[in-house]
Simulated assay, not measured.
Amino acid sequence: MPTAHKLKWLRRKLKENQTEFWSRFGVTQSQGSRFEQGMCMQSPLAILLTLYIESKVNDDDLMVARQDSRLQNERMAA
């Protein structure tokens, strides 16, 4: 599980504010701030962040996943 220190370090390395960084994972700025302060996160998010940190998932992968999720939600609503 990524530590609060590692998450803050990564965000600063990318030169992004909390909103920019956390939105790629579907997390609000306020929730991301809590994670950076050490609050525990749910396992799926921790796994996704670990994969991102290890460069096994990139921004393009996350964008495709968000688009697929939106399409699936639209189909279910129709």
Rank of each mutant, 00 (worst) to 15 (best):
M1H: 04
P2Y: 08
P2E: 06
T3W: 08
T3M: 07
A4Q: 12
A4I: 04
H5N: 13
K6S: 14
K6Y: 07
L7A: 07
K8R: 15
K8M: 10
W9G: 04
L10K: 14
L10V: 15
R11N: 10
R11K: 14
R12W: 02
K13A: 15
L14G: 00
L14D: 13
L14R: 15
L14S: 06
K15G: 02
K15L: 09
N17R: 07
N17K: 04
Q18P: 07
T19D: 10
T19N: 10
E20T: 11
E20H: 09
E20R: 12
F21R: 09
F21C: 01
F21K: 06
F21L: 08
W22E: 02
W22P: 02
W22I: 01
W22H: 03
R24T: 04
G26A: 02
V27S: 01
V27A: 05
T28I: 03
T28P: 01
T28F: 00
T28G: 11
Q29C: 01
S30A: 13
S30N: 12
S30E: 13
Q31I: 05
Q31C: 03
Q31F: 02
G32I: 05
G32N: 06
S33V: 03
F35L: 04
F35G: 02
E36G: 02
E36T: 02
Q37M: 13
Q37I: 00
G38V: 04
M39F: 14
C40I: 07
C40A: 14
M41A: 15
Q42C: 05
P44N: 06
P44E: 02
A46K: 04
I47E: 15
L48S: 03
L48R: 11
L48E: 07
L49K: 02
T50N: 12
T50V: 02
L51H: 12
L51F: 13
L51C: 12
L51G: 00
Y52E: 05
Y52P: 01
Y52A: 00
I53F: 14
E54P: 05
E54N: 13
E54F: 08
S55D: 12
S55P: 00
S55W: 07
K56H: 10
K56C: 04
V57H: 04
N58K: 15
D59L: 03
D59N: 06
D59A: 08
D60C: 03
D60I: 12
D61G: 08
M63L: 15
M63Y: 10
V64Q: 11
V64P: 00
A65W: 06
A65N: 06
A65Y: 10
A65R: 09
R66K: 13
Q67V: 14
D68T: 05
D68A: 07
D68H: 03
S69V: 00
S69E: 07
R70T: 12
R70N: 11
R70K: 12
R70W: 09
Q72R: 10
N73P: 00
R75M: 08
R75A: 05
R75G: 00
R75K: 09
M76W: 09
M76P: 00
M76C: 08
A77D: 03
A77G: 07
A78M: 13
